[in-house]
Design a protein around this nucleic acid. Structure first.
Lengths: 224, 224
DNA sequence: TTTTTTTGTCATATTATTGCCATAATTCAA
DNA sequence: TTGAATTATGGCAATAATATGACAAAAAAA
């Protein structure tokens, strides 16, 4: 879990950014001005800073310069669209990236992911482990005992739904609606066929499934 | 039983959301546009609102603003993927969460659960614990010492009746009438067979039942 | 385009569940 | 202790559901 400091005077924006980053498994702290930010930085350690340029008190650039005297922690700056030339000045002072307001929170999260990944290796949370199975939702791959399992994309969708709801019985329709889309045209018995194909790839003995089990009259469960 | 208002103009989506929420023990009402929603809200009380952004007539944001003038009921908004910047505007107007279309209904249910739990405390009483046994009436599963017990649906019905009336002697007919229906065709001695099958799955030593005991001349009890 | 892979459908084989019974084992009271 | 009553158990058959193999259609790759 990486720690992120958000320096932003508008509580509305601060809250949204925090919400999104938290959802992406980051631990956030918000500072509503530069002084508070610098104080927090003196006492705690963070993995990345999101820094608004326009703030009352000391502005973002001053804060940036001060931080850079002692640390090269990644800093993403938030700036208004008009101030294009700020970019240059910002970069030269050591900001790592810019996001122009108004921004999409998802976009911001994506950039944060990039930095965190660059510094700390693989980004977390796209990779989940369930027993011998490791699912990488970004790469859309599944490994069993460290061996990549060759799945088609439909097969991947089906197993991943079952894995993510492990030990929960899912009906064919729930699987379809979650793995594919609400307006899937196909027959719900197609799931049987997917299950057959998946079993042949993940089970030691597809005739006696250990993981992907049938619930007669109900659906399927991934037991782990 | 918590009440949820679904505001969505597409009947297909509305129906499916309703189906999933109902299965999770929520009482749903659907409104096909903002006007109807506001009318319903004036007359009834709900515990949570699911609100589509894109609707004919008044759009979701307008509805959101109107609701927020008088109420802080949790609101989850449904929005199309392209409209990312809507998120910002939505959050600042007081939506509690966003779900992007096309969404997984299971995912939506999970988020609803989170809010309902946060506000009303403990999650719905679908899960009950009796000694080492945990029964999930929504999933229709029973665990013993955290291990899922593989029961057929008839077996589940029988054990769950006995568990819910633990330490109470039930006659075969009481079991039949509660577990199945009043017009069960079968012979009441079938219960003996169910008991046999259940014991083999839940008892350490089915020959000397510790939990599911026989009351000679009367019926069966689940001792816990 | 052609070729290959993936996906969807179907008919048929296989299996699971349920209800039923015959027989064995147990209980309880005379 | 005995035997009548009651319950336990194993197995069978009917039914319903699932598994599977084969193939066609669709999609993706070459």
């Amino acid at each position: 879990m990486h720690k992120i400091l958000i320096v932003e005077d508008e509580p509305a924006i601060s809250r949204i950014v925090e919400k999104y980053l938290s959802k992406s498994n980051y631990e956030c702290t918000a500072a509503r001005d530069g002084f508070i930010a610098l104080e927090l930085l003196a006492k705690n350690s963070y993995d990345l800073i999101i820094l608004d340029v326009m703030m009352p008190g000391i502005d973002g650039f001053r804060v940036l310069e001060t931080i850079r005297e002692t640390s090269d922690i990644p800093i993403i700056m938030l700036t208004a669209r008009e101030l294009e030339e700020d970019r240059l000045s910002g970069f030269s002072k050591g900001a790592d990236d810019y996001v122009v307001k108004p921004f999409s929170p998802l976009e911001l999260v994506k950039r944060v992911d990039v930095f965190i990944k660059r510094i700390y290796g693989v980004d977390e949370d796209t990779i989940k482990t369930y027993g011998p199975f490791v699912i990488d939702s970004k790469e859309k791959t599944i490994k069993k005992n460290n061996e990549l399992i060759d799945l088609t994309s439909a097969e991947y969708s089906v197993v991943s739904v079952l894995l993510e709801h492990k030990n929960q019985i899912l009906t064919r329709n729930q699987i379809i609606e979650t793995a594919f889309s609400l307006d899937y045209e196909g027959y719900d018995r197609n799931i049987d066929t997917y299950i057959k194909r998946i079993r042949s790839k993940i089970e030691d003995d597809p005739k006696k499934p250990k993981y992907l089990q049938t619930k007669y009259g109900a659906g399927y469960v991934f037991i782990i």
